[in-house]
């Protein structure tokens, strides 16, 4: 499977994760965890920055700022996850996260 298809799969697993988190289905959660393991074996590491502080220095995300800009902004929703790959033990950003950012 080529890199783009893996990336598509990573995004789908992320969407699945969002649904599971809401429905609290442990059986599906288990399968999702296995899917994440497969992605990691293929060298794709998903990262969900929900709730983290947002700064303009963060180039791991493309932010859509909702409301007014303020010094204290947080990532309130993640549409697409941050995806890293690994080369020679070092992580490399493969896909920027698409996020919604707003003040507290």
């Amino acid at each position: 499977m080529n890199g783009q298809l893996w990336l598509k799969m990573a995004n789908l697993v992320f969407d699945l994760n969002k649904k599971i988190a809401r429905d609290n289905n442990t059986q599906v959660e288990r399968i999702k965890t296995k899917m994440e393991q497969v992605l990691e074996e293929a060298g794709f590491f998903l990262y969900n920055p929900t709730g983290e502080k947002y700064a303009e220095t963060r180039t791991d995300v493309e932010a859509n700022i909702s409301g007014e800009v303020s010094a204290d902004m947080y990532i309130t929703d993640v549409i697409k996850p941050v995806v890293y790959t690994e080369e020679n033990g070092m992580k490399i950003l493969l896909q920027k996260g698409i996020v919604i950012v707003s003040g507290k």
Partner: peptide, 19 residues
């Protein structure tokens, strides 16, 4: 180096600080 942080271009000073 992984591409997830960029301070942007900033004027150099005697003491520089960054989070």
């Amino acid at each position: 180096d992984d591409g997830g942080f960029d301070s942007g271009i900033k004027p150099l000073k005697e003491r520089i600080e960054e989070i």
